[in-house]
Design a protein around this nucleic acid. Structure first.
Length: 115
DNA sequence: ACACTGACCACTG
DNA sequence: CCAGTGGCCAGTG
């Protein structure tokens, strides 16, 4: 499943695929996903892709935060508190819209899905 | 058809 | 060390 680079899929599709693979209780960053997809500078696009998901249940956008562990996308959720709530429910400590011990819960696709 | 923007990140000066 | 800017893709005005 980790051969997205091989396949010429749409960026959005690849982003969705990676996000879907994020295990519960873990979080990753836009940049990490972009880097894994081989598009380092497209971190912005990753967030955009999430926006395109709107509210797809299969795409846990709440597990995707920025490099600082900040819940930058919470504003785009149905309810701003929903993002932090979902993370907290999975065991990820969130305080003041920021993931505590971010490095500890960070899930890097380039490492976890390492080939 | 052009330009700007957007849930970002890393490199320069 | 803080500030500025470039870069990537796609959608919208």
């Amino acid at each position: 499943m980790a051969h997205f680079s091989r396949v010429k899929e749409n960026f959005f599709t690849m982003v969705y695929a990676v996000v879907k693979l994020i295990p519960p209780g873990r979080v990753t960053s836009y940049g990490a996903i972009a880097a894994y997809l081989g598009a380092k500078g497209s971190a912005r696009m990753v967030g955009w892709a999430m926006n395109a998901t709107h509210n797809l249940p299969d795409v846990p956008a709440h597990r995707v935060v920025n490099r600082q562990g900040l819940l930058t996308g919470k504003h785009h959720f149905a309810a701003p508190e929903e993002m932090a709530g979902l993370l907290a429910a999975e065991g990820v400590p969130v305080k003041d819209d920021r993931v505590q011990e971010f490095s500890k819960f960070f899930w890097d696709p380039a490492v976890e899905l390492a080939l």
